[in-house]
């Protein structure tokens, strides 16, 4: 029994390492390439290690504004989305009303492809005067993230028992102050996972900015990166340096909130 147990442990560890390698190898190779001085360095560990490509990127006139635009888009998306989602998920999770069917529809909406209605949407944005404007991208992000985040937060809201809130109502608390003082502090993990989900998804998306923004100065980071692929061609050290800088902010956000995020998405058993 003991030998068998040790064999299982060994077997599991072996496969866990294989998967970790599978997941990390492209990243590690990317980091290695970004540190190479020359594009034609073929050795496993670069002969000459340099941070030149990172420095060049940070100095270039498009890069930092691009990061800043992406930060603005992601943060404003969260800021606009949260109040709408809070109200809707409170209603769905904690109130009695006929519109419960809506919950089901909300669950289905993320399955519909945003790209399929993007042409008419861009035309609408033209009419609203949001074309070539970061606000347009933010609005699209908010709209397409709404259904899933509402569903996510509703699950957290539904978990809390009704008695605390009812006691507060007896003491003369209004619905609104109940949300602010009772629900909010108790569903912080839910808010955290909604925020991470929004940040990551609005950061990595280049579809909406590509469709909406033509102005060079208001392009977001992934969009700039896509343009760099054509521009730099096979200059891998610069390309990988840019791609690593682009993935850092969502990674950072994810690292800080990963426990809540994973629990929110997959259930607390995966924490």
């Amino acid at each position: 029994m003991n030998r068998e147990k040790r064999r299982t442990v060994f077997f599991r560890t072996f496969w866990r390492i294989i998967i970790a390698l599978f997941v990390l190898l492209p990243l590690l190779w990317g980091i290695r390439t970004s540190l190479c001085a020359s594009n034609y360095d073929r050795s496993f560990i670069p002969k000459e290690i340099t941070l030149k490509h990172y420095k060049d990127l940070l100095k270039s006139p498009t890069f930092l504004p691009g990061i800043w635009n992406s930060v603005k888009v992601s943060l404003l998306t969260i800021l606009i989305l949260l109040p709408i989602v809070t109200l809707a998920s409170y209603a769905l999770g904690r109130m009695r009303f006929h519109g419960r069917v809506l919950e089901r529809i909300l669950l289905l909406l993320p399955l519909l492809p945003a790209i399929a209605i993007l042409i008419p949407l861009v035309q609408n944005m033209h009419t609203l005067g949001l074309y070539n404007h970061l606000m347009g991208v933010i609005v699209l992000n908010v709209v397409f993230l709404l259904p899933f985040t509402t569903y996510l937060l509703k699950n957290f809201m539904g978990l809390m028992s009704k008695s605390v809130e009812e006691a507060a109502f007896v003491d003369g608390c209004t619905r609104f102050s109940a949300i602010v003082y009772i629900i909010l502090p108790n569903t912080l993990p839910g808010f955290a996972s909604v925020m991470v989900y929004c940040f990551i998804n609005s950061w990595l998306n280049y579809l909406y900015p590509y469709a909406l923004i033509a102005d060079m100065n208001s392009r977001t980071m992934p969009q700039i990166l896509l343009a760099l692929i054509g521009q730099y061609g096979n200059n891998y050290p610069s390309l990988t340096a840019a791609s690593i800088l682009t993935m850092l902010p969502p990674l950072l956000f994810f690292c800080i909130f990963q426990k809540w995020f994973i629990a929110g998405l997959f259930g607390s058993s995966m924490k």
């Binding site: 891998y236 993935m247 969502p250 990963q258 994973i262």
Partner: peptide, 21 residues
């Protein structure tokens, strides 16, 4: 678990540059 989830949260453009490399 969070380590394994990394590919899912990095931007597709970034990961495609890694794969091109």
């Amino acid at each position: 678990r969070p380590l394994y989830l990394i590919p899912w949260i990095i931007p597709p453009v970034s990961s495609s540059i890694l794969f091109r490399t």
